[in-house]
Computed example of a mutant assay.
Amino acid sequence: MSRTVYVNGEYLPEEQATVSIFDRGFLFADGVYEVTSVIGGKLLDFDGHAARLERSLNELEMPNPISRDDLLAVHRELVSANGIEDGLVYLQITRGAADRDFAYPEDPTPTIVLFTQAKPGLADNPKAQTGMKVISIEDQRWGRRDIKTVQLLYPSMGKMMAKAAGADDAWMTEEGHVTEGTSNNAYIVKDGTIITRHLGTEILHGITRAAVLRFAKEAQMKVEERAFTLDEAKEADEAFITSASTFVMPVVEIDGTALGDGTPGPVARRLREIYLDESRKTAV
């Protein structure tokens, strides 16, 4: 069944939705995006995603074509129009269409696109019961990973490398230290302490990451934000990832090395439970 999507101020059937072949998102990956989860027909952590969107646009000196209130209204309309109970809302803003030139166009008119994906049972992913297996790969992305851009080719390659290896995902490493997963933030747990890389330009400032660390501290869990090595990860008691689409997902194996007893650990399980409970309370 055709979805209703949003393109530059219009709600359209997906078959009628188009953007210019001169759009800089297509020509240069000159664009940013956000993904907001929907559970029970409500948006999780919308304000966090909206704030990060504004930061990404500012970092790229790209004008914002829509107010936060209007953006929320579009999200809600798409969720309603497409009957999304559990799923995702994708948003993408590019610098817009202009004749091909590396230099930014003067006074650009940004392109804005939103669409939904239905994901029935999103919060009941069976992988949460068994855990994920990851492989390690060299981090070969550009240096500004803190900006949520549409430059996703290498993460796509990483996911394909993981698939070819019989794993679920890949953790990227730089000088022996884990940066993040292909589309998620990475964590290990050792002697009850949650360890995750500190914020910087090397990783995305995850909205789910921020919420999970806040909930962890409120639950009196010890948290260290620092770089950790791949060797540390393989010797950890447990591990997990966070993202808007997976929430808190246990990792049970890294490069063929089982963590703990090879099953989801208690910290990851508890944090997933807390995150889902608390996020539902504040969903809009």
Rank of each mutant, 00 (worst) to 15 (best):
T257F: 15
V35H: 00
K190G: 12
M172K: 04
F46M: 05
M160Q: 15
F115P: 04
K190Q: 13
A167P: 07
F240R: 04
W142C: 08
G40S: 06
S67R: 05
P120W: 03
F102A: 15
D107T: 12
D47G: 11
S37M: 10
D99I: 14
V223I: 12
L230Q: 11
I112Y: 03
G40D: 04
V189L: 09
T282V: 13
K42E: 05
V252F: 06
I84W: 03
E273M: 11
G121V: 11
L276K: 02
A283E: 04
A128Q: 11
T282P: 05
L204F: 02
R141P: 05
S156A: 15
F22T: 15
I112E: 01
K127S: 15
I241A: 02
I254T: 02
T182E: 05
P105R: 09
L230H: 08
I137W: 09
T257L: 14
A167Y: 03
T182A: 04
V79T: 07
S245T: 10
M172D: 02
D231Y: 07
T242V: 05
G265F: 02
V35L: 02
E225K: 00
L71S: 09
L72E: 06
K163C: 15
M160F: 15
I207T: 03
P105L: 06
M62C: 02
A283Y: 05
G260N: 05
E61L: 11
G176N: 06
I241G: 01
V19F: 10
E106N: 13
E218R: 10
V212H: 00
L53E: 04
R197E: 00
Q16A: 13
L204R: 00
V284L: 13
N184G: 04
V79G: 03
V89M: 06
A123M: 08
T179S: 01
R100C: 11
T182N: 04
A50C: 14
F28Q: 02
Y154Q: 14
P65I: 01
Y90D: 02
D231V: 06
M161S: 13
L259R: 00
K119Q: 15
A239L: 03
I39T: 14
L43T: 02
A98M: 09
E61A: 12
D231G: 09
G40V: 07
D255I: 02
I66T: 03
V113Y: 05
V35F: 01
E77L: 05
F115W: 07
A118T: 10
T263L: 11
K190I: 11
T4S: 10
I194V: 10
D277R: 15
V178C: 04
M132A: 07
G256E: 08
A211F: 11
L204D: 01
E235A: 15
D107I: 11
L27N: 10
E232I: 05
L43G: 00
V79S: 07
V134L: 06
D124Y: 14
M221C: 09
T4V: 10
A123Q: 09
V32A: 03
L57Y: 04
E218S: 10
E235W: 12
I84P: 03
V252Q: 04
D101A: 13
T18W: 13
F26K: 10
A233M: 00
R214A: 13
E235F: 14
R55W: 08
D47K: 11
R272Q: 07
R100V: 13
D261P: 08
A227C: 04
A128C: 14
V19H: 10
D237R: 15
L78M: 07
I194T: 02
